[in-house]
């Protein structure tokens, strides 16, 4: 397995607040890796450290073979970063922005022109290259940010909450661009998010909470181990239904007018349905979602 990022024992505190308390993880080359966690969990701190902007208090970090703290310039050349805030110059056009940032990577002349063209095409910003960055919509700004991050054809693309604050449709299209980019170019993508449906699309997910890793795995693994499937029953005879379930020792909860029974496998629903079919007028079988997994992991819903 080719590990492009390796982190061991990463620690960072701000005063007495422990932002990150000893993280160990690695990222496989070419994969889409998601860091899922509520605000204040330590996601941005971790990204800032990996991008060489913030010095960790302890731990080892290897990015594309470069050791953090010793070969920072090597790391910087190998990465592209999309920060949570929009950090391009509002009064300059998208093209001017990308060109000036390209200059930071020791590019000039034809190489620079080609890099700008390539990055613009990859992030799909060619249409509004000449418009001032400050006048763009949220989604367009985000695309411009991504184009800027791709200017040095990085090995790893870091994105800190790339879709936060965008409307659902734009969020989806930005997300799809990132996914396409990773799949077509083999770029490693490391992103943080607090949207479950995005984490569910990643190749590998680490759930981070209070600066610690709470769970890790592929979305399927996480769902399998932390989310349970559900059988929702719409009762025709509520009283009889409950009595029957209690009789059989099946735990249930009541939600939104229906009775919910947790089941370990969707197939188990058949048995229960056979038992209660005289007392229900309808049913639903739901497989576990990332939301359920998250609640299963942290014991609460995600803080927005």
């Amino acid at each position: 397995m080719d590990k492009i990022i390796e982190v061991t024992g990463l620690k960072k505190a701000y005063g007495s607040v422990q932002a990150v308390r000893g993280l160990d993880f690695y990222v496989e080359r070419g994969k889409l890796f998601a860091f899922l966690g509520p605000n204040g969990a330590g996601k941005s701190t971790t990204i800032d450290i990996l991008c060489t902007i913030l010095k960790p208090d302890g731990g080892e970090v290897l990015v594309d073979g470069h050791r953090l703290g010793h070969e920072d310039a090597g790391i910087r050349s190998a990465i592209g970063v999309v920060f949570q805030d929009h950090l391009l110059d509002p009064l300059l056009s998208v093209e001017e922005n990308i060109r000036t940032r390209a200059g930071l990577y020791h590019m000039a002349g034809k190489q620079l022109n080609d890099a700008v063209k390539h990055a613009a095409a990859a992030a799909d910003v060619t249409e509004f290259m000449r418009r001032p960055y400050g006048k763009l919509s949220g989604g367009q700004k985000r695309r411009a940010d991504i184009a800027r991050a791709l200017i040095n054809t990085p090995q790893v693309l870091f994105l800190d909450e790339p879709t936060t604050g965008l409307d659902p449709q734009t969020r989806k299209s930005v997300w799809e661009s990132i996914r396409t980019l990773q799949q077509t170019t083999g770029l490693t993508v490391f992103l943080t998010t607090h949207y479950m449906e995005e984490a569910a699309e990643a190749d590998y997910v680490i759930v981070i909470d209070h600066g610690d890793i709470a769970a890790r795995g592929t979305p399927t693994e996480l769902k399998a181990s932390y989310a349970s499937d559900q059988l929702r029953l719409a009762a025709s005879n509520d009283h009889a239904l409950r009595a029957l379930l209690e009789d059989r020792g099946l735990a249930y909860t009541c939600a939104a007018g229906s009775v919910v029974v947790k089941i370990s496998d969707t197939m188990d629903a058949l048995e229960i349905l056979a038992l209660v079919k005289g007392h229900i007028k309808g049913f639903e079988v739901l497989s576990g979602t990332m939301d359920d997994a998250f609640i299963g992991i942290t014991g609460r819903e995600i803080r927005e």
Binding site: L87, L88, R101, Y105
Partner: peptide, 13 residues
């Protein structure tokens, strides 16, 4: 103030 400096800091300069 606008943290634009982060964008420069993350580049090899």
């Amino acid at each position: 103030a606008h943290k634009i400096i982060k964008d420069f800091d993350a580049a090899p300069i």
